[in-house]
């Protein structure tokens, strides 16, 4: 399960994540400090950061 915050993705990334069947969009994931600063995803309950969201997905 990959969770992403609506505030942390641009339109293109949002579409990319929405098209997957293992993602969930959240209006806020309660990591506002990290969200303000970094690209991040919550993967199976754990926050993962990277240069961008695709890079985080590539690390998996």
């Amino acid at each position: 399960m990959i969770e992403y915050c609506l505030n942390n993705v641009d339109e293109r990334t949002r579409r990319l994540l929405t098209d997957r069947d293992d993602t969930r969009e959240a209006s806020c994931l309660d990591h506002c400090g990290r969200c303000y600063r970094d690209s991040f995803l919550v993967v199976d309950g754990t926050v993962e950061t990277g240069s961008d969201h695709e890079a985080i997905l590539d690390q998996r």
Binding site: E3, L29, D30
Partner: peptide, 12 residues
């Protein structure tokens, strides 16, 4: 608790 679905993700 974190907000979200009770059965998956960080809110599980």
């Amino acid at each position: 608790p974190y907000y979200g679905p009770v059965d998956e993700g960080q809110s599980e």
